[in-house]
Design a binder for these strands. Structure first.
Lengths: 118, 118
DNA sequence: TTGACATGATACCTTTTGGTTTCGCATTAA
DNA sequence: TTAATGCGAAACCAAAAGGTATCATGTCAA
């Protein structure tokens, strides 16, 4: 089966949409943790937490580093870039200062968005 | 039936999770539009667009102003605040961390290569 | 080698989500 | 008044999301 691949902003926004996943990021910002360690902080099974970590990884927020029989889940600061860029696009617009960042954002949105304009 | 109310960040992150809704925000940043007008830009029914606009309103991104028999959907710049605040939390953390890292690196360099006198 | 441990993977279930149709209600234009 | 217009709301549907339980696999320690 094909694992449908989302564009970076979509994968990132999707990852942040769930409160558990945002809480996991808050946890991981202090230090890297194994899955079991992360799971200890939540009222759900390790399997569920593993799914959340996978989505966070797809979103570019988490990087996994095998270490013996464990796997360390580490936060990736650069993963926040697509989100901040998207928000900056609006800030810039409101400041009436459009840059080529606008083109990148519009290109991303055009992947699925409005019908032929014009 | 209870309409469960989400906290502000959750409602905001949820609203941004869908690509159509992000595209709607890009549309509305130029000017306020009626539902039908927004719907003209997408390949879906007016009812579907209405649902998206409702979620954007719940997320604090859109404000509706009745005007005769029409309703103008207007973007609300302040709606982005919960998101930017959340991101700022991480940025602040990493700023400290980078500072600590810089200090550690400088200390290490002073030990390893004391030659470098500036 | 053997067993315990940390994780991966799969099947399955329920709720949410994103979409459609259809109908009803105000408001405006004729 | 009548007819068209712009919305709102409800019923319905398929797919995705969030969770569980269960089993398989690789790695470490004794």
């Amino acid at each position: 089966m094909s694992t449908l691949t989302l564009d970076a902003p979509q994968a990132a926004f999707r990852a942040l949409a769930d409160p558990t996943r945002r809480a996991i990021l808050v946890l991981l910002k202090d230090r890297a943790m194994t899955i079991a360690e992360v799971a200890n902080n939540f009222d759900m099974t390790r399997a569920a937490v593993k799914k959340h970590l996978t989505i966070l990884t797809q979103g570019g927020f988490v990087q996994v580093t095998p270490q013996g029989r464990e796997k360390l889940n580490e936060i990736v600061p650069q993963g926040f870039a697509p989100i901040t860029n998207w928000l900056t696009y609006f800030d810039l617009f409101w400041d009436e200062k459009l840059t080529d960042l606008a083109a990148a954002i519009e290109a991303d949105l055009n992947i699925q968005s409005p019908k032929e304009t014009k």
